[in-house]
């Protein structure tokens, strides 16, 4: 990015500007299902205050950039998770918060628990802990924003590229 001396305007490729914006504002969907949801609420509270990073929780998937899967997902919830993810506008990101969302957590052996949400949606950040501390969630969000600022592709984009490549190979 450069500043034009004459007009004092910021001149940059559009993609760079978009990356810069995405790297400084992240609106997560309030998708809390279990214990982790309480810690997710906590990051918005006075002590942790994610507003200062440009992180504002949204109640509608259509306004959200990023889905924090905060808690255990079971077979009954799985289609609802998929539906919400599909309702989000691209570019979209997923943080699997807590051991349950990462790999089933303490309930992994159960008959009804999804052992990791990456079976349903592409995951950008895996955040372990049971539940992770609020600082850890902030770190996850900031890492995601740094990646965006650097113009790195999201898990959804990588997944889509993977699908395209596989389809192409199948036609060869």
């Amino acid at each position: 990015m450069v500043v034009d001396e004459e007009t004092r305007a910021l001149v940059a490729p559009l993609q760079k500007l978009l990356d810069w914006a995405r790297g400084h504002s992240m609106w997560p969907l309030t998708f809390g299902t279990a214990c982790c949801a309480i810690e997710m609420m906590t990051v918005g509270s006075a002590r942790y205050d994610t507003d200062r990073f440009g992180i504002f929780f949204r109640n509608s998937p259509r306004q959200a950039d990023c889905m924090i899967v905060a808690g255990t997902i079971n077979l009954k919830m799985a289609p609802r998770l998929k539906l919400l993810y599909d309702q989000m506008a691209a570019p979209k990101y997923v943080i699997a918060m807590g051991s349950c969302a990462v790999a089933g957590g303490p309930f992994a052996a159960g008959y009804n628990v999804v052992n990791g949400v990456d079976a349903i949606v592409p995951v950008d950040i895996y955040l372990t802990g049971c539940p992770p501390r609020p600082e850890a969630l902030i770190h996850a969000l900031l890492t995601l924003m740094e990646r965006n600022a650097a113009g790195e592709p999201s898990a959804a984009e990588l997944h889509a590229a993977e699908v395209r490549r596989a389809a192409q190979e199948a036609t060869w």
């Binding site: 799985a78 998929k82 990791g116 349903i120």
Partner: peptide, 13 residues
């Protein structure tokens, strides 16, 4: 070993 990824995908559909 818990619910398999295939079962999960089928359930999500």
């Amino acid at each position: 070993g818990g619910v398999s990824a295939e079962t999960v995908r089928a359930a999500a559909a």
